[in-house]
Design a protein around this nucleic acid. Structure first.
Length: 564
RNA sequence: GGGCCCAUGGCUCAGUCUGGAUAGAGCACCGGCCUUCUAAGCCGGGGGUCGGGGGUUCAAAUCCCCCUGGGUCCGCCA
């Protein structure tokens, strides 16, 4: 409902500025600690019209008539600032809408194709990969919540050198089938790399595998499929443990087999704005004119395709089907993805919106699957679940073992996701067990706990059928009640913001702020022991809070537990 | 050598895009609150030249330039 309040303020302020005889192109409205919305536009007017900013503010405010405005209760000039305050009607409308299931989103037309994780099938997901996973999955949920139709895709890299190394490894070493298969594949992959290091002449075996795979040699192709599937099966199970599900797994090799890669190459050759040349048998694009200081290889001298070209084919396919294409890539893909965007643009194909996240490293340095230096996602989940179970057992010996394990799983999944999503994507991070295992304030359990408290109050209130009573919600005037309702009103505003800026960490911050507001209300305002009318008003507020908390948690991919 | 990202209390971060009214949290530390709706909670305290330097502006953590430190990438890897 905050969006509607802001629109009303914008219209009111715009008119008043015009009536006062000023012209500005930005209303400079923002959330302020001193008002519900504040404008700093008077500084601009002051310098443009050579008057004191405070005088401009007074003149503008004098021209505002609030008689017909529904959501603005007051507007005040405070020095150079113009402060707007929300009305009681705004508060009751907010509560009413939430309880009626209207969260105030604009409808959107269109399909977003979002790709995330897409890790090489050479081992299990590690804590670096799941930063991609959590950012991508949370964004998918945010976009869906904002009203977009979203298809989530995983690009399976089954044509590359890594996949070939795995196949080579399986030709030389036994796969330990007693292990989770992606972990067993990593063992083989690590051994394969070591073997090539010791006996470099064996590298030709790998090159041969790549060539035969590309040529479509049946036996080799099925070896690749089989090897990649083993790894991918493990990956999918890890993703499921994090509450992540892809709609579609798109195999890289399909674009080679279908001729799409060749088609892209011939389109590039035909494109007037791209200059293609041959060098030692390899096909290259000159990107110097486009601000890149290097050439860009689109096919190898032995005729095989490379990742970049296959990715072009994949992106063209996505662009044909989606209205928006969103990619989540690690920082190492920054250059290649901007080159990709440039070429797609030249071909007249819709460019992807790319979210780049910086790397996760270990205290002792960067991770490497090849060298076996990584903490796997499974290992992380196991540890956090163990710790969560210990916490549940400490405080809830009244619950059954199954129930406790269920809560521990939900707490662990949430703690991991929140710990990752709360940090802005562009920050490089160093993995820290202390922070991963922390279940206090800046963590998912803190938010889940507030939801469980709401549920507990509602359970004890012993409401009969549809008895959330809205008739007395205008009694909610205490400081903490008002603040909480205002926080609730901002949910859709935050989602829209996160959906357009593609910043999932905004929602994590909102969740924490919302819970803080609820905890203050919980501290100051007794619900169940209040006078009957106030009690039912507060119950309505608790129910509205529960709804928004549950929506927020769902959008973050965290289970909204009813008790913990 | 060049491109891009990051630098905010002892540690981990929010705020930077869109400059404004006292720079916010968490962890750790110190001190309080369970006969009151779940203490995974709440309250109070100490602790910050927002990496350094210059510039733009009435106003800079936020914009521009230079530097330092860390990360990452730079034609046949993905």
């Amino acid at each position: 409902m905050f969006i509607q309040f802001k629109r009303e303020v914008e219209a009111t302020l715009k008119k008043a500025i015009e009536d006062a005889g000023f012209t500005v192109d930005d209303l400079e409205l923002g959330i302020s600690p001193f008002a519900d919305l504040a404008s700093t536009v008077c500084y601009r007017i002051a310098s443009a019209y050579k008057i004191a900013p405070g005088k401009a503010a007074t003149e503008i405010v004098e021209r505002i008539n609030l008689a017909r405005e529904k959501f603005i209760a007051a507007v005040k000039a405070s020095g150079p600032y113009i402060n707007f305050y929300a009305s009681n009607h705004f508060l009751t409308t907010t509560l009413r809408s939430i309880l009626e299931g209207n969260l105030g989103f604009d409808t959107k037309e269109g399909l977003v194709i979002l790709e995330h994780t897409s890790a090489n099938p050479d081992g299990p997901l590690h804590i670096g990969h799941i930063r991609n996973t959590v950012i991508g999955d949370t964004l998918a949920r945010i976009l869906r919540r904002a009203g977009w139709q979203v298809e989530v895709e995983y690009y399976v890299n089954d044509m590359g050198r890594q996949a070939a190394m795995v196949v080579f490894g399986l030709n030389h070493f036994e796969l330990d089938r007693s292990k989770k298969l992606d972990h067993a594949i990593a063992d083989v992959y690590i051994k394969a790399n070591r073997l090539i290091e010791e006996e470099p002449q064996l590298k030709s075996e790998v090159d041969e595998l790549i060539k035969l795979n590309e040529a479509g040699d049946e036996a080799v192709v099925s070896r690749f499929r089989e090897a990649v599937s083993l790894s991918l099966e493990g990956t999918r199970r890890s993703l499921a443990r994090l509450g992540v599900d892809h709609d579609l797994f798109v195999w890289e090799s399909d674009f080679v087999r279908s001729g799409e890669v060749l088609r892209v190459i011939s389109e590039i050759k035909a494109c007037e704005s791209i200059s293609v040349f041959e060098k030692e048998g390899a096909l290259m694009i000159d990107l110097k004119g486009a601000g890149f200081d290097k050439e860009f290889v689109i096919s190898r001298s032995d005729g095989t395709s490379i990742y970049a070209t296959r990715d072009l084919a994949y992106h063209r396919w996505k662009a044909e089907r989606g209205d928006r294409v969103v990619d989540i890539f690690g920082a190492d893909h920054k250059l290649i993805s901007s080159q990709l965007s440039f070429i797609l643009g030249s071909l007249g194909v819709k460019k992807p919106e790319i979210v780049i996240f910086e790397f996760v490293s270990l205290p002792e340095g960067s991770m490497s699957t090849r060298e076996g230096k990584f903490i796997s996602a499974d290992e992380l989940i196991d540890e956090v679940e163990k710790r969560a179970l210990a916490e549940v057992e400490k405080r809830r010996d009244d619950l059954s073992a199954e129930k406790r394990a269920e809560i521990a799983r939900a707490v662990a999944r949430g703690a991991i996701r929140y710990d990752i999503v709360k940090v802005a994507a562009e920050k490089p991070t160093i993995f820290d067990w202390g922070s991963a295992l922390d279940f206090e304030k800046q963590s998912a359990p803190y938010i889940q706990y507030a939801h469980a408290r709401c549920c507990s109050i509602l359970r004890r209130a012993d409401l009969t059928e549809g008895t959330i009573d809205l008739t007395s919600i205008d009694l909610l005037k205490a400081d903490q009640e008002v603040k909480l309702i205002k926080m609730l009103s901002k949910f859709s505003y935050l989602i829209e913001d996160a959906a357009s800026s593609l910043k999932p960490n905004l929602l994590a911050t909102y969740a924490k702020d919302l819970v803080e507001s609820f905890n203050m209300f919980y501290r100051d305002c007794s619900v169940l022991n209040a006078e009957p009318k106030l009690r039912s008003a507060r119950l309505a507020l608790v129910e509205a809070t529960r709804i928004i908390l549950s929506e927020t948690l769902e959008t973050l991919g965290i289970d909204a537990l009813e008790e913990m």
